[in-house]
Write a protein that binds this DNA or RNA. Structure first.
Lengths: 159, 159
DNA sequence: TGCTTTGTTCGGAACAAACCGAACACGCAG
DNA sequence: CTGCGTGTTCGGTTTGTTCCGAACAAAGCA
């Protein structure tokens, strides 16, 4: 397959992938483009032409990605044009964002406990869920920390 | 606050919560209703009246929940009407479903590796991601297993 | 064989989100 | 002050999704 077409295809797939994770499709395409770009950085006009999107759409997409901490804005000295690059651990952040869902889950369970009366059966169900939340909220950050350590261990003796 | 209104409110919140997790809103409401129902089961007509939805919508919602393994269909002997109940570990399943996203992520990274040439920079980025995937795919199931053990340990000496 | 109950499928309406083009604000250079 | 480059904001349009009502299948009972 032609390399150019393969790149196009990958960018489109990345767009759909990240769309399922809650981003907009253009945001996802931007991430895809950055992932396979030589230096992992770009500026807005380039992305507009490369991805064939209006600069208004690009503006909101970049804002969304910046707000999510997935990319960083920066400006080279003496340059008026802003540039964007992937955050070093894009997916660490994505994972941690997913963890926020757990808090929402906990809130929901607590609300349910307030709503049900003293019926034992629902309370028991909800208690199990609450404990599962506690377990995950306790263990998952540990997992991420372990990953950070392992990554650091791999990279620090390297270049 | 009135108990009835509080129930209503909770069901609506549950609908929005599960909607963010990829289900439809009615599916989410069904889960909410079951969570705070006395025995955690219901049948379709009841849910239609309780949640004020058309039975067609209820049909697809229940199908969706069944396909996701979040509820079970069953039929009492001599009963023509089907009933639905929460799966025992609804959220264990929900978590495992989230893990499927990790596989999709891995596919994406592999596709990216095929697309980029021999440029070291992109390959390095992608390698780190691939390793993160490997780490999570290895460790997360362990976490779920540990939770299962802990839960079982809590319940088995119980009732 | 008809009749009723239960559940699914289909077409269209209502709603929400994304995207675009155009207008707007700001900063810098001449 | 004027002109240009850069980025944001604002209606309008399109696209996609959800939900409803109606028509349709399937399974039991008379």
């Amino acid at each position: 397959m032609n390399t150019m077409a393969a790149r196009q295809q990958f960018i489109e797939d990345a767009g759909m992938f990240f769309e399922r994770l809650g981003l907009s499709r253009t945001s996802g395409r931007v991430l895809g483009w950055l992932l396979i770009s030589p230096d992992g950085s770009a500026d807005a006009p380039d992305l507009c032409t490369e991805l064939a999107t209006a600069k208004s759409s690009m503006s909101v997409a970049l804002r969304q990605l910046d707000a999510a901490g997935l990319i960083e804005r920066y400006r080279l000295p003496r340059q008026r044009r802003e540039r964007y690059r992937l955050t070093d651990d894009v997916f660490g952040r994505a994972f941690r964002a997913k963890m926020a869902e757990l808090d929402a889950f906990n809130d929901l369970v607590n609300q349910a406990l307030r709503v049900v009366g003293n019926d034992v059966a629902p309370r028991e169900r909800l208690r199990v869920m609450s404990e599962m939340y506690g377990f995950m909220a306790r263990e998952f950050p540990k997992l991420l920390d372990r990953w950070d350590q392992e990554k650091r261990a791999r990279l620090s003796p390297g270049p």
